[in-house]
Simulated scan of single mutants.
Amino acid sequence: MVIDAHHHFWQIGRNGHEWPTSGLGPIYRDFGLDDLRSEAVGVSLSGTIVVQSQAHDADTDWLLEVAANDNLILGVVGWADMLAGGAADRIAHLAQQPKLKGVRPMLQSLADDDWINQPVVAPALEALTQHDLSFDALIFARHLPAIDRLAKTYPGLRIVIDHGAKPPIARRHSHPEETRHWRELITAIARNPNVHAKLSGLVTEMMPGQPIDDLWPYADHLLEQFGPDRLMWGSDWPVVNLCQSYRSWFDQVHNHLRAMPTHSTDKIFSTNAKTFYKIKSETGVTL
């Protein structure tokens, strides 16, 4: 059985929506549970983690409402204004929601690469640690040194690097030095035992028509550094639809990892998401 560790829902013009914009035609519409079930046919999907897509409390509240009414959604990664004076109180409130598992500030869009380490954010980070919530890092490779500092400052904070820090796959051949730098930064960040990574969002870092084989060295490096115990598969649906289908991305990764022992692929496709996000089994025991 498969747990999708990273996907989204959104409603155009509602719940604080700002992205996607109308220029992204294939994904500029509402996406919800019925769409997910339709597109994941044949994947043996047993549960998912839905991740915020808007920097707005309304988006998080809506996702929690959706999750509360459907057992397919095992957890929600929401958003909180970590600069707000009441950030710690908001995080404490979110922590009381059974399916809220973590938060994701949208660091990739911020001008300051070291934004997360400024003192004013500390109360929010301390609240996350206190309430045992996780931290999804939506970043580019240039942010990895800041996340490294974050991981060392808060060793009790569970951190996951979304989309492998968006490696420079499209520029693999034209700018090989960027790939070398990404590899070095990934190697460094993976030394922190509280940092994990998602095998997600990689196809949208490729050029149109670029062969899928250009992607695998990046996926393999993530696997080499984080190992099968700290890497989890995610669809990044519906963003993945900009390049290919949900089922296609799943099949490609599953096929690429087919030589691994079953217990290792089970971790990547299911168990690690349960462990990292502290998903409880039907008996109420944390796996």
Rank of each mutant, 00 (worst) to 15 (best):
R230A: 05
D266C: 03
G16Q: 10
T265F: 10
L287R: 02
P208Y: 05
N15F: 14
A80L: 05
A273C: 15
M232E: 04
P208S: 05
H56V: 08
D89I: 03
I147D: 04
E184K: 08
W62N: 03
A95T: 01
R37C: 14
K198A: 15
S235Y: 08
S38A: 14
K101N: 06
F250I: 05
L215M: 15
D4W: 08
A80P: 00
W182A: 06
R183I: 14
L110D: 07
L94P: 05
Q252N: 05
P238Q: 03
E18D: 05
C243R: 14
G85C: 04
A88N: 07
F9W: 04
R247W: 03
H173D: 15
R230Q: 04
Q225N: 10
H196G: 01
V285L: 14
N117W: 03
V120H: 15
H254R: 13
H263W: 09
P155V: 13
L257S: 11
H143S: 09
P261T: 06
A92K: 09
T187H: 10
A219P: 07
A87W: 04
P26V: 11
K101D: 00
F250Y: 14
L157W: 09
A40P: 11
Q97M: 09
P168E: 07
T286H: 08
L94E: 06
M207Y: 09
D30N: 12
S174K: 03
R104G: 02
G227S: 03
F135V: 04
T283A: 10
S248G: 02
H163E: 05
P238G: 11
R104D: 02
E224P: 01
P105A: 07
C243H: 11
G47T: 06
D81W: 02
P193F: 11
R180P: 00
N69Q: 13
A219V: 13
V76Q: 10
R149V: 13
L202A: 05
P176R: 09
F31I: 02
H181K: 11
R258G: 00
D35Y: 02
W79N: 05
D213M: 13
G86R: 04
S270N: 10
F276H: 10
S22A: 15
S270M: 00
G32Q: 01
I91W: 04
S53P: 00
Y218K: 07
D35R: 03
N241Q: 08
P26H: 08
L202W: 09
A259L: 10
G102Y: 04
Y246P: 06
V253R: 01
F226T: 01
A165F: 14
N71I: 11
N255Y: 14
K278V: 13
K267L: 12
R149D: 11
D59Y: 03
F269C: 08
I147L: 14
T271W: 06
N272P: 00
A58E: 13
P168Q: 07
V240Y: 00
E177G: 12
V240S: 07
A67S: 03
A151T: 09
D162Y: 08
